[in-house]
Simulated scan of single mutants.
Amino acid sequence: MNAERALLVLSRARLPDAVARALLQAWPDPVAALEAARHGGAGRLDAGSRQALMRPDPARLDADLAWLGGGRRRVLACSDPDYPALLAQTPWAPPLLFVDGDVDLLWFPQIAIVGSRRPSAAGRERAFAYAAAFAGAGWAVTSGLAGGIDTQAHLGALTAWRTVAVVGTGPDRVFPPGNTGLQARIAAAGTVVSEHPPGTPAIAAHFPSRNRIIAGLSLATLVVEAALRSGALITARLAAEAGREVFAIPGSPDNPLARGCHRLIRAGAGLVEEPADVVSELAPVAASLADQLRGRLGTAPPRVAAGAAAVQPGPTADHSRLWSALGHDPIPLDVLVQRTGLTVATLSSILLTMELDGQVVVDNGRYARRS
């Protein structure tokens, strides 16, 4: 049994998060972790969990493997070096993540945008505009793919860069169904993340719990519009508990969708009047996260610019060769391979660090120097 199969079997066993995390941290090799679980390392388990560990459903396992084999898909254990660093620092980090899209994007500095599922017209416009502004400044915008503010945040981010969608279903399911096309766009141009294995349907209890992943991935959470009883306030609370920044946009005292934001501001959340209020506040912590990403990629620590985590073209010959090959017109990756003679893996790592600084922009898989 290989590592992917072992992680899929563990995911179907539905072990308590604390138990699964302890197993994977004690046995970073997933095959060893599975064997430990089968031989008592997971403690007392119910009959369903024992059955799933000892005799996994072969049809289900084949279906899960087929999903993993389609495109840029991964299952990440909390012990995996690719597991996002910020999320790993939280006490509620899921033991497993299913990723559809660019796994490296999970290491980028992220701002979560959340709010009402039934926002006002002004709220929709603000979510879209703020997301576009953040993405244009080099930030990844993270939200939950729900209707309303979440949808507008993802759409706004996609106009300028990429976005992360944390879903409460399996990564192959869509809720609400009206966001099917949007989820496909995000998987192609950004990242879709779930703690639930493929095939998991929309279950009410999963949606509040996915808020902890949104908060944990992000350096800050911005609440655009929220009533006093809103799931967005749960995300804001979790962000604060994780030591992250919380911001809110004020509104009219007569607007019920502004009252949750006003409560947050009274409790100490940053009052936001324009996107620059958030970006300037977060620049120092974004630079720190950028250094972690560079260390992970094995690249030289570059200069960091104010307002975004910055990467200048590196000092190596490969960096210089790629920088010379890039122009101001978007170029697909295969052309860059031809121009530089570098492998796709090498190019992807160097381009990632350049994107992080805003030196490179990406448009539908094509790369260009940022003007």
Rank of each mutant, 00 (worst) to 15 (best):
E274L: 00
Q51V: 08
T142H: 14
A3L: 03
S280W: 07
G327P: 12
D62L: 15
P250I: 02
L68Y: 03
G341A: 14
L87Y: 09
S116F: 01
P208G: 14
A47G: 13
A220Y: 11
A59C: 09
L333V: 14
G170T: 02
D329F: 03
A129C: 12
V192D: 00
R50G: 15
P28M: 10
A300M: 00
D357R: 07
S194L: 12
R296D: 03
V279K: 15
T180A: 02
I111N: 01
A52R: 13
V272A: 11
A305N: 15
L8S: 06
A204P: 08
Q51M: 10
D29V: 01
P171F: 02
R5I: 00
A286T: 02
G307C: 08
A286M: 04
T340R: 02
H39I: 07
T142V: 12
A165P: 04
A127G: 05
I214Q: 12
F98G: 13
F247R: 07
V285F: 03
R266P: 08
S230A: 09
V246L: 11
E273G: 11
L10C: 06
L264W: 08
G123T: 11
L87D: 13
L61G: 14
E241C: 09
A22M: 00
N211G: 04
V362Y: 04
A239S: 15
L76R: 10
Q25A: 07
I213W: 05
N211H: 10
S218E: 01
L297G: 03
A240L: 15
S348N: 13
L15D: 06
A368V: 05
A283P: 02
V361L: 04
R185L: 12
A242L: 10
H328T: 12
M54K: 09
V192I: 00
L257N: 14
A184H: 14
A287V: 00
A88R: 14
M354D: 12
L217N: 03
A236K: 03
L53V: 08
G40K: 10
G69K: 03
E225V: 00
L86E: 13
Q312C: 00
G178K: 08
R44A: 13
A215V: 00
R50D: 15
W67L: 12
V361A: 07
I213K: 09
R369P: 05
T180R: 08
T169W: 01
V9E: 07
L145Y: 06
R126D: 11
A305M: 14
T151H: 13
G358V: 01
V164F: 04
D102H: 07
P95W: 01
T340W: 04
N255W: 06
A26E: 09
G181E: 03
T163C: 08
R38S: 13
S349Q: 15
G216H: 01
G298E: 04
A300Q: 06
P275E: 09
L264M: 09
L7A: 05
A242M: 13
P28Y: 11
L53A: 12
V285C: 14
R294F: 09
L24Q: 04
I113C: 00
T142Y: 12
A308W: 07
R212W: 06
R124V: 10
L322M: 03
L65S: 05
A32W: 00
M1H: 11
Q152E: 14
F247V: 06
H328W: 09
L282W: 01
D329C: 06
T221H: 02
